[in-house]
Structures are given as C-alpha cells and as structure tokens.
C-alpha cells in the first residue's frame, strides 16, 4: 500500500469538483457549512476580510480551532499555512488535516521560497494568477490550484482576471509546436516538463478552483462558467445576514451554474451580501495576491 502518491493527492481534489469549500472559524459554522452541502471546510482563526481589517501578522490558526472543526464534521477539513512555513505545514499534517492551503491570505514566512510540497504526504492547494505561477506550484508538488483573486474583498474582478489568464495561456500552449515550448517555459518562468504535460493532456494536470472575492451565488456560477472546477468561499458566507441560506444558495448555484432561472430564485431575498471593496482603493503593497511569486 502506497500513501501520499500523486494520484492519491490529486484524486482527493478531483472528488471535490463541482463543489464549494467554505471558510469556517468554529465548530458551529463548520456544521452549518456541512449541512448546506459544502464539500469541505477551511478551518481558520479569522476569515480573510477580518484578517485584512485586523492587520498585523496573520499566522496558522490555533490548533484548538482546527481540532474543533475536525471533530465537528465528516467532510474533509483544510487549513492554511503561511507561504514557506515548513513547520506550520508539518504541524497541520501531523494533526491529520486533509488538505493544506499554502496561502497568501496569511503573512508569508518566506519571501523567496515556497514549500516543497512533493515532500509531504498531505496534499496542498496553492493560489495562482497565471500559468507560470500555476506550473511552478505544480512543479513543487501542489495537487490542486485555485485563483488568488483578491481575498476578503467580496469583489470578483481579480478572480475573473486570474482564471481567464490561466485558461487563455493553457489554450495558447496546447496549440504550440513542441519546439516552441522551451521558450514559453523561459518566458513564463515555468518548469518545462509541466508545460509539456499540459500540452499533451490539453489541460492542467490538477483541478483549478475559484477563490478570492466570491460574494454571491451569481459570482460562484460565473467562475464555473469561466472554467473553474469548483469554488472556495471565504468571507462571503459567514459575513452575510443569513449564512445557512446563503451557503445553500452558493452550493446550488455552483452545481447548476447554467440554470439562470434557478440562480434567480436562489438569489431572492438573501439579505445583504458582504460589503465589497474596490481593488483600486487597496494599496498595491496591501494586496494579498502580490504575496508569493
């Protein structure tokens, strides 16, 4: 029996496809998420919009919170480690967390190196804004990708930009001649072998979810329409007026993302969604998507 193989790690993410992964900060929220049909929960100390508001250094959650969430639900539990923080990642792995997010939402521990994720038994998800970044993370062993978007803003514009960019670059790559790929690798700063594999298979070798700014059922459906395999919702759910109803609506809109009448029904009287942030009002150095490389 072999544990921690690429197939087992990537396969875990395949099982999440078409689903919604929700940020939760305690057992009670985790249960609401599971009841609403979330495919997994992300256990955090604070949701991204609160991290943004609090400022200072954001770190791995208190293991007590992670443990509490793991005990509360039977669906998989994810948790975030700081970029490059080997020990936070190992601690979460040792606790039995099902999936780790090497996340720009937390303050990076290393501004130069990301984790060598292939060394871990637990699978990782990482953020990306373009194909170069996606391929570098796959090269390091990420088993799942997500758009970075701009976390905690409730503004979908950056996630849209990122998924369109990655997918356009994949399409371009697939139509290239083999002798053009090394130069593309150089231009993107991407590992050659990963690009070759993407060209051969016609798509990314791991699933790519949407994250960073999903605030409404229509936002979730938009990201599915643009080719996301599933959706992460951070601050959107538990910052809304009626989290249970909101969570169910996001799940259904993700499943039936092209059923516009249904989405209209789901979107009725959901109450106030989280208050959004205009990206240009965030100083470039405060944008979480700029963290990592």
């Amino acid at each position: 029996m072999n544990t921690g193989t690429d197939r087992v790690k990537r396969g875990m993410a395949e099982m999440q496809k078409g689903g919604v992964i929700m940020d939760v900060v305690n057992a009670e929220q985790a249960k609401i998420a599971e009841e609403a049909g979330a495919v997994a929960v992300m256990a955090l100390e604070r949701v991204p919009s609160d991290i943004r508001a609090a400022g200072g250094v954001a770190r791995m959650a208190d293991p007590r919170i992670v443990e509490e969430v793991m005990n509360a639900v039977t669906i998989p539990v994810m948790a975030k480690a700081r970029i490059g923080h080997i020990v936070e990642a190992r601690v979460l792995e040792a606790m039995g967390v099902d999936y780790l997010d090497e996340s720009e939402v937390l303050t990076p521990a290393d501004e130069e190196f990301h984790l060598l994720k292939s060394e871990f038994t637990v699978p990782f998800v990482c953020g990306c804004r373009d194909l170069g970044e996606a391929a570098r993370r796959i090269g390091e062993g990420a088993s799942m990708l997500r758009t970075k978007g701009e976390p905690g803003t409730g503004n979908i514009v950056e996630a849209v930009r990122h998924i369109r960019k990655v997918n356009a670059q994949v399409r371009k790559l697939v139509h290239m001649n083999d002798d053009e790929i090394m130069t593309e690798a150089k231009l993107l700063g991407a590992p050659f072998e990963v690009l070759l594999q993407i060209k051969k298979e016609g798509r990314l070798p791991v699933v790519n979810f949407a994250a960073g700014g999903v605030a409404t059922p229509a936002d979730a459906a938009l990201m599915m329409e643009l080719g996301a395999d599933g959706v992460f919702v951070g601050s959107g759910i538990f910052k809304s007026d009626n989290p249970a109803k909101f969570a169910r609506a996001i799940v259904e809109a993700t499943t039936h993302y092209q059923d516009y009448k249904l989405i209209a029904e789901l979107s009725k009287e959901l109450g106030e969604p989280m208050k959004g942030l205009e990206i240009s009002k965030i100083a470039p150095e405060s944008r979480m998507q700029e963290r990592g490389w």
Binding site: R7, M12, T74, D98
Partner: peptide
C-alpha cells in the same frame, strides 16, 4: 462504514 481507512494522509494505492 465511512472514512474507514482514516483521513486523507492515510489514503493509498494498492
């Protein structure tokens, strides 16, 4: 029985 081989890190090929 659900999840009877353990959590994700115990997932395997055989």
């Amino acid at each position: 029985e659900r999840n009877s081989f353990g959590r994700q890190k115990e997932s395997f090929e055989a």
